[in-house]
Design a protein around this nucleic acid. Structure first.
Lengths: 368, 368
DNA sequence: ATCCTCCATGGAAACCTTTCCATGGAAAGC
DNA sequence: GCTTTCCATGGAAAGGTTTCCATGGAGGAT
């Protein structure tokens, strides 16, 4: 392997001092053309690569950001992570990936690690009350930005989706379809999106004068299996709901599986709307209506905000709009025969309601 | 923010030398109980956090690994990344995430960055001929492990799936179903899995005496959109295929969308089998038959191999088995009425063929 | 021609830790 | 009781870079 080549070697070959070599290599203006020429040539010739550790030891800048999500396997966070990582790279920053797995302890482990690694900033989809290491971060003045979620009591810029309007839009859509008993599968209350969406749901139900039966509200953990459990629970109450609003896509998949096992026909017996848009949700059986949020935009915005904070500014939080996309899981179109059944109508705040007539939960097995 | 607390402060408070403090904090055995006690107390009291940069500058160990995948938004790589990251964490390593986006230039950018960051090792799903920085890595002796893919001419331990047997199993299954013209949507030939699976496909077709028409082979780029383009292309040849084998799940989604647009009924007009298992593929319309590979096991194995390399050993490459899971997209079961249609038969190398009778590409619209 | 200014340069300190080496003291062995 | 061994400790060097400070030379202004 040989000794690694240092700036000293470059300086020697270029016949300048290490100081000059450093200035040239880090693009300081105080250099002569001659020196620039010789140093860059020497560096190239030796295949010199600056040592990031040494550099950041001296300059206290690591050009590293920490990205804490709950789980990259959740397609929503995969999108966020991908977008954030690419945006960071474009600015010369590398990204430390952390999967907290919706676990406060793992979250703390990672925040510790970020501190240890002296990251220049942290983008986090936080979990829990934010007592532990989240507090240490702000205390130590580590630039911090929240994405997707927030934590109460933290004065931290954030990028979130408009949970309230998204939820209302979905409920309004289902109400127009004639549903009065709408079930809700939400996330844990220890997560802001879990709380906000649930609250918005309750308010929207009230506004539309629908059945506020608390038995119609279930709380999962944003992961697939819990979606199935919640769907089973909701369908087991005396008068089961005729429509379901689900707070994220993994739980929607879980619910879908559970419902199928129960022989519940989605879009026919029960309407379904889920949060998060993912390409393949439109390829499901049936295609899923969704409250879409632009995860990539979220990731990019988070990076932008973080760089603002790093730069000493105090950016405003960003709330991104959501957008209801109605597909067959909540449009009651005929499942198979109809070609191109519903032309995937886009933002449809006041779309023409196909059939405002109440649709009783028909337990009949025959095709309509 | 105040000055950050260093080991010097800890030593001062504990009334020992920095040397002793260092030894205690890094767990050297050459310390007295008294010193251990005083130093740890002081460190806790001051909230001391070692500076990873300084530490690794001296010890040339960064406890960081680089993980280069093509795109975390691909659920397969999301699984790999998640598993690898968690396994690394368990060993006290942090993971630098890199999305090469199937782009050789971005790949090189990242490998440069890894070099710059002095990662202790790299796990890569490599792309291209591996001329550029991949070579620099091995040249500089950076521990390297390939995952999912390999590059010819590189003596690098790898974790891959058994592409050959997976492909054969899928083709055998389709052949048993009576298909003679099977279409193939593969990846780019610049990627080993793209080449290997395509080669295996061609061989399997020959072995079964099926139609080796080269017009039935299309090459995408492993990303969703290309799956659609390829499906369109394949269905446009004079005598279109009656079954499709697709080399990864994003392209399968793209193909599914394209086929649906063409009013091709999957599992009826055309059978479909795709590589990669992902939970929701079984929730698609229809549920997709897959050649499943255990992405999480791959990620974990890659980390294990990498630690072996870091530890100076030379581990054997690992080839993980694949497993054909037949679902409705290639089992011709009645789509809706039949409850629990096919009990998702597991590894079925010699499963009872449902109907060895050739099934002509019936353009009839009637249900069987 | 002289002085001043400016600027590129070299040298050295600083960043924070680990690790090597020497030292001193205590325990152990004769 | 004296020597040897062992081991915890302190001090200092080393790791590679950036940055500060001083210096010297060149060019411009008077």
């Amino acid at each position: 392997m040989g000794r690694t080549v240092t700036i000293r070697d470059v300086a020697a070959l270029a016949q300048v001092s290490v100081g000059t070599a450093s200035r040239v290599l880090s693009g300081s203006p105080a250099t002569s053309a001659a020196a620039r020429e010789r140093v860059t040539a020497a560096a190239r010739r030796l295949g010199y690569r600056p040592n990031a550790q040494a550099r950041s030891l001296r300059s206290t800048r690591t050009h590293t950001i920490g990205l804490l999500v709950s789980d990259v396997r959740n397609p929503f966070f995969a999108d966020v992570a991908h977008a954030a990582e690419q945006a960071a790279l474009a600015a010369g920053y590398v990204t430390l990936l952390a999967n907290a797995n919706e676990d406060t302890r793992q979250q703390d482990t990672y925040l510790e690690t970020f501190l240890f690694q002296r990251v220049d900033g942290v983008i986090a989809a936080p979990q829990g009350a934010g007592g532990g290491d989240l507090a240490s971060l702000v205390e130590r003045g580590v630039p911090l930005v929240f994405v997707d979620r927030t934590v109460e009591g933290f004065e931290v810029p954030s990028v979130t989706a408009d949970n309230d309007s998204g939820t209302r839009e979905a409920v309004a859509h289902l109400a127009r379809r004639g549903h009065t008993r709408i079930g809700y599968i939400g996330g844990p209350t220890s997560i802001s999106t879990g709380r906000l969406r649930a609250d918005a749901f309750v308010r929207a139900i009230a506004e539309h004068g629908l059945d506020p039966d608390p038995a119609l509200i279930a709380h999962g953990d944003f992961m697939s299996a819990s979606g199935g459990r919640c769907a089973d629970a909701l369908m087991s109450v005396p008068r089961p709901p005729t429509a379901l609003l689900i707070a994220d896509s993994p739980m929607a998949i879980g619910a879908l599986t559970a419902l199928r096992r129960r022989r519940v026909r989605i879009g026919t017996d029960v309407d379904l709307v889920a949060f998060d848009d993912v390409e393949w949700l439109s390829e499901l059986d049936p295609p899923l209506s969704v409250v879409a949020q632009d995860a990539a935009a979220m990731g990019r915005a988070a990076v932008r905000l973080l760089f603002d904070v790093i730069g000493g500014r105090t950016p405003e939080s960003v709330v991104l709009p959501t957008r209801l996309i109605v597909r067959r899981s909540s449009s009651g179109a005929a499942p198979e025969p109809a070609p191109e059944p519903v032309p995937a109508q886009g933002p449809a705040p006041a779309a023409p309601a196909p059939a405002p007539a109440p649709k009783p939960p028909s337990p009949s097995k025959g095709r309509p």
